[in-house]
Design a protein around this nucleic acid. Structure first.
Lengths: 353, 353
DNA sequence: CGTAACTTTGTGCACGAACACAAAATTTTT
DNA sequence: AAAAATTTTGTGTTCGTGCACAAAGTTACG
């Protein structure tokens, strides 16, 4: 345990006052080159480390943070991300943070554009972005860059943006992992029905598209290309989609497994159960309420999850760290958890720090 | 965001001074019944919540904490637990904590007894215990209880002890999960070779024994009892063990999968590879250096892991929380992660908060 | 050269909780 | 009933950091 050096000691070592050190640490300017050099030399030498918590005590003003993600419902994927953010808000409740939630419709680019346009106008101190539409997000980021407002991505990364931090899983790796899991089944014979690939529309960054890409690549590597069948159902789920699915499985008896590349595996699983088809394993994504139920009753056999609470928690933590100390936190790739019936219960009580 | 109530406000509401509130919150005594009642009424009403970090600023003395676990080597299971504790020490470096590491030999009850006997003698402020020997641990706990020294368990729970918190995975569930994973293979035909069950010696709480129990129960539930074969090799691994294993697999060609119930799966995997046997999947436990290598090169197909860093991290955090605020943190059952080649890389960069 | 305007630097108080110590209230002893 | 001892209560200082403000130093300009 190296003894922590305090600001006063640094000031003494550099022959300046604590105020000057403070100005340098926070980039408040108005410091002569000579003293800056002296202090920075000492700083580098002793390896000064801020303490997030003690600073917070004396922090006068609060921070206004905008969180803009797709509409988040409890028990759904985005709801978990928001949950993680709220946990972090609680943990760091000594820092006065005023969160402002700005949800947009993830299926409507116009809604996204509208919401995003309003974000910089409020000139917040920081933004957490759950990106869905690449172009719209990029436009927002440009504007935030221009105004020097820091932002963090959750769930997905957007190329050419300059976020303070990113917390997301590798979606292509998710696809490869899915491939790995169905490999023993496909090796024998039969086909894999793949649901939920969104055609990557103009400027839309779809995680299910990336998953599909990873899956295809994996199957190709294992000489199992052209062993997939693309299925789809109409949303919202109703008698219509039920009929579609029934027809699909009737006309494709060679299907030995089903992959649902988004979090709507429970819809397919329910349809399959109602159709009396219970021998085809279903793999899907995310620990949502519906999927939890299906994993528990066996109608979904595997869920791949990407720690949404952790994403949200870390995102806010990173943003705070930047606001206080200008720490950039690079890109973090979160683990992909494999959940089956036997280990499901222990993922419910998620412990964050 | 409910506004946080401060001690001064509580004092004002109850018509006393801040000092009195402080005395009640910390149980320092010397408070009249009348004022105590008044303050506690207010306390309950406004739901005062300590803030770990702000208190730490003004904390005068440090805490001496003993960490006693099996000998921990980096890259091994117990090393990860210690790593988590160190991370927490860093995160809470504003609280002056003096850790004292007291490792014992996990294969030698006498060593454990000796080390444990010395622990209470040092009258530490708190203890983190990695229990292996049930009787020895229980004796230590009794003594700590008598002296009012709080303790936390990592890795395993011990019945009849009164820890402030427990962070461990459900080992029987691990066994059931393992059963679930080999089920498709066993369903067809063949047998499962099980390595690493320690006969539960007198007073020894062995996690591999619990895993074996869970595995047997699961197989029984699925009508696959008597489909396991018990194997063993001499430790430390050498030419001797190599010969044993070779003989074992030669005489049991019906083996279709191998389960290693402790973290030494890499030993078996290496032997199998050297023997030219590469069609039998190996499942083992824990993200150790050797196992990481084997999972990467495919000689181990699945690893089950129980978040050792998180255990260590949480353990210290809980202990701090108790020392400062007398918060008990009950029992936490951590998730069991399923790792295969495709999601392995993302578990290396573990993010704790 | 003198003064205004600006830049640089230091000082001091605030934050919220812990704890030492002094003051006040109560109980015990003489 | 007064003095002493003890318990109860309040006040003030401390921790490390942020930030406002004042003091000192520097530059600009008539």
């Amino acid at each position: 345990m190296a003894k922590q050096v305090k600001i006063k000691e640094i000031a003494a070592l550099a022959g300046v006052s604590a105020g000057t050190v403070d100005r340098i640490l926070h980039g408040r300017g108005n410091v002569s080159a000579a003293k800056r050099a002296a202090v920075e030399e000492v700083l580098a030498r002793v390896g000064y480390k801020f303490n997030l918590h003690t600073s917070a005590v004396s922090l006068k003003h609060g921070y206004r943070i905008i969180i803009t993600t797709p509409q988040a419902d409890e028990g759904e994927y985005w709801g978990s991300i928001i949950g993680g953010i709220q946990k972090a808000l609680e943990e760091y409740s000594d820092i006065r943070i005023e969160p402002d939630w700005c949800p947009y419709d993830q299926f409507d680019a116009a809604s996204c554009q509208e919401v995003f346009a309003a974000v910089p106008e409020q000139s917040p101190d920081g933004v957490i972005i759950g990106p869905t539409f690449e172009q719209e997000t990029l436009r927002l980021c440009r504007e935030l860059d221009r105004r020097n407002i820091p932002y963090v991505f959750v769930d997905a990364d957007i190329p050419d943006a300059n976020p303070v931090a990113v917390f997301a899983a590798d979606q292509e790796a998710c696809g490869r992992l899915l491939g790995h899991l169905v490999l023993p089944i496909l090796r024998e014979k039969g086909k894999l029905a793949v649901f939920g690939i969104k055609r990557k529309g103009p400027g839309q960054a779809s995680s299910s598209a990336s998953r599909g890409k990873g899956l295809d690549a994996f199957l190709q590597d294992n000489g199992l290309q052209d062993r997939t069948l693309s299925g789809s159902i109409t949303l919202p789920a109703g008698p219509e989609s039920e009929k579609e699915a029934a027809a699909f499985f009737k006309s494709h008896p060679e299907v030995r497994a089903v992959a649902v590349l988004n979090s709507r595996g429970h819809l397919i699983a329910d349809i399959l159960r109602r159709q009396g088809i219970d021998h085809i394993p279903v793999i899907s994504f995310d620990l949502t309420r519906g999927n939890i139920r299906c994993l528990g009753d066996g109608s979904i056999s595997v869920l791949l999850c990407q720690r949404p609470e952790l994403q949200g928690f870390s995102a806010l933590k990173s943003l705070i760290s930047y606001l206080l100390y200008r720490n950039r936190d690079v890109r973090h790739v979160l683990p992909i958890d494999i959940l089956v019936k036997e280990n499901l219960p222990y993922y419910r009580e998620v412990i964050e720090f």
